[in-house]
Design a protein around this nucleic acid. Sequence first.
DNA 1: ATGCCGGGTCCTACCCGA
Length: 256
Amino acid sequence: MKIATWNVNSIRQRETHVQRWLENTQPDVLFLQEIKCETPAFPSLPFHGLGYTAEVVGQKSYNGVAVLARVPFNVVHRALPGLPADDAQARYIEIEVEGITLIGIYLPNGNSRGEDGFAYKLAWMDRLAERAQALLDDDRPFVITGDFNVCPTDEDYAPGALSPTDALVRPESRARFRRMIWMGLTDAVRAVHPHGPVYTFWDYQAGAWQRDMGLRIDHALLSPTLAERLVSADPDRNERDQPQPSDHVPVLTTLS
DNA sequence: ATGCCGGGTCCTACCCGA
């Protein structure tokens, strides 16, 4: 099973990029983040033509997630369980495929709106850990993949690419990521590449791509039985060299 | 040392991303 994630920074700007990548890579499931459109505006038709069914959780202007799958699936949740009912930010989608739970997330960045914005990020991570624990308690095989907006360790960003006080590297963010590892989840990309940079994002500014000043913030966390089936987990750096690219590249995880 | 780039929107100056 091939499961991918990609923060596309507007699906309307990246529609042909996604089409080409699906044709070349043929994942079973692709989670998208930052689609930046309302649900009816999502361009489903070109993906249907490639054999993919879409489920979209959109909102105006910001955020927005979706999943494209060429295998049958059931939609389980369209929002992260446990969040306040009036939270309208489109950041979570959960489906079931062949008895496996697959979750796509766009975790809050946490740098805007001061400490309130950072508190929102931490609360969101607390709810995510609760969801993961509930699935572990049920012995459900599951994958959580997407844009986590966390560099788990200092190996996960180029020196100077971020301030030490950035919400992506603050100890409170890292502690919450690490807690999910301690719960028994496997960071798939790090399991396959134990050391060194494996970036998934490069800023548009200051020649970050040309200087390889990247971040590793797009991840796939695997439940214990799925971790035993891990074959590969890699960012597709080639996408960052395409014309008008997203600032993130796809990350593809393969399970036997 | 964030706002250099590149999305978005009350259409155009301003908000947001990481």
